[in-house]
Design a protein around this nucleic acid. Sequence first.
RNA 1: GGCCCCGUAGUGUAGCGGCCUAGCACGCUGCCCUCUCAAGGCGGUAACGCGGGUUCGAAUCCCGUCGGGGCUACCA
Length: 502
Amino acid sequence: MTDLSSKDLTRPTSDKVVARFCPSPTGNPHVGMARTALFSWAFARHHGGDFVFRIEDTDASRDSEESYELLVDVMRWLKLDWDQGVEVGGPDGPYRQSERMDIYAEVARRLLDAGLAYKAYDTAEELEERREKARAEGRPSGYDGLHRDLTLEQQAAFEAEGRKPVIRFKMPKRDYSFTDLVRGEVKIPASDVQDFVILRANGHPLYTLTNPTDDALMGITHVLRGEDLLSSTPRQIALYEAFAQIGIGSGITPAFGHLPYVTGSGNKKLSKRDPESNLLGYREQGFLPEGLLNYLALLGWAISGDRDVFTLSEMVEAFDISDVQPNPARFDIKKCEAINGDHVRMLAADDFVERIVPFFEAEGLVSQPITDTERAVLVAAGPLVQERINLLSEAVPMLRFLFAREDFEIDEKDRAKNLDEKGIEVARAAREALAGLSEWTTESIETALRESLIEGLELKPRLAFGPVRVAVTGSRISPPLFESLELLGRDLSLARLDAVLA
RNA sequence: GGCCCCGUAGUGUAGCGGCCUAGCACGCUGCCCUCUCAAGGCGGUAACGCGGGUUCGAAUCCCGUCGGGGCUACCA
């Protein structure tokens, strides 16, 4: 550990807005996290400020490295870029708390030296017993401050017993109030403030210390975080005041904004384990980052009363944290998909193709990487499916028939329904009409089929084209038929009709 | 138990004392368009948790109540 005892930990004040996102790398990144990141990012961008991406991994476990990478991956996928932080660096790094342990130790030491924190020797059992009693008597159940004013002799006595102290911060006993950016005035009465642990007995710093320390050292001006942290805000405020006294950070206290929860169905908080909360899962399902972010923004914020589809830059332009709703929102996958569909339709045709390519590669329908000929098929077919899907992955079943060869299969249910005796008769007529075509275009195919089936067999369009569609595309649901036939090509189209006739 | 936060249709929101016979979107649903599925167009369904105040007037302000959530760790 580096000795920082003589290091200057102050920093100049600045008018620039600095917001941050500082997740703890545990489990899979979830949607509530993404929304917090989005709001904080949009806030920073709207005000032309900096966005800091820090990782709070003091509690590092085995899988935190993997989680860390997932987090970075997700942020990049969402295109929530950061000016300072992990991977990109910055003036106040490092940005992973596990690499900043010497700083926390030093800050704790200075707090202790200044008499703003103290050693407490209570055992877990003693604490528990007093907590129970307090609760039974209707008093607040936090730390009662028993060891706040221990004399050196008393401390020595505890040490002699072999007890190791935790370091507790000495909360000034007063009412705390602050103006929450999304909730307005919040007041916490003095009766509910207790001294909290900043350093464990084993010397490890806790979140209660590391988070405010880093915010102070990184010049964070606006703290946007989950509402679960609302009642611990007095701690941060008091700690900031202490920092100002002993020259840590810029001496100013940041503004706080507590974002409401995103809940799942029912009223439970969307947990990290919840499959519907798994962010990477959304990417795999074919959500667009633009679409997901747009939907997430709608959970607590509205760009106006009569519009809910917008781009990220429109959001940045219009975003005002005071417009954010304080009440929790339920995540509705149906609406999320609908919004995503709107964004799918907003994509430029060539962009759309680029976005669906990975799904075809992953399914093994095209080479990996895709060849130019295969890409050309998607370029031609793209416009046919772009307006019919909400999720990118839905393009795969719809266009599978264009890439299938020996493995081409017809959905059995659809076959039974459309290719009965009558349907096969229709397919035969279609085959005959198509075989004689001199040119293979959407127009000529349509003309031939209409003449032969609608006029010739006097069928309703629905009954005429259904069997052909199923025979050729393998499904009752497909892109427009004539275009599909043209794209598939004469030989394959006729072969597929032959196959159902055999 | 104590403290804090929240409460408009099934869901997300608009609404900041009169423009509200409460708007928009998703969902559900009827019709139109149509070669399937979509997309698109036109309709329908459905809400201010409850009770008191304040006011000429309240979804909007105040109080209470009920309901939901959070915190109350040597987790974050």
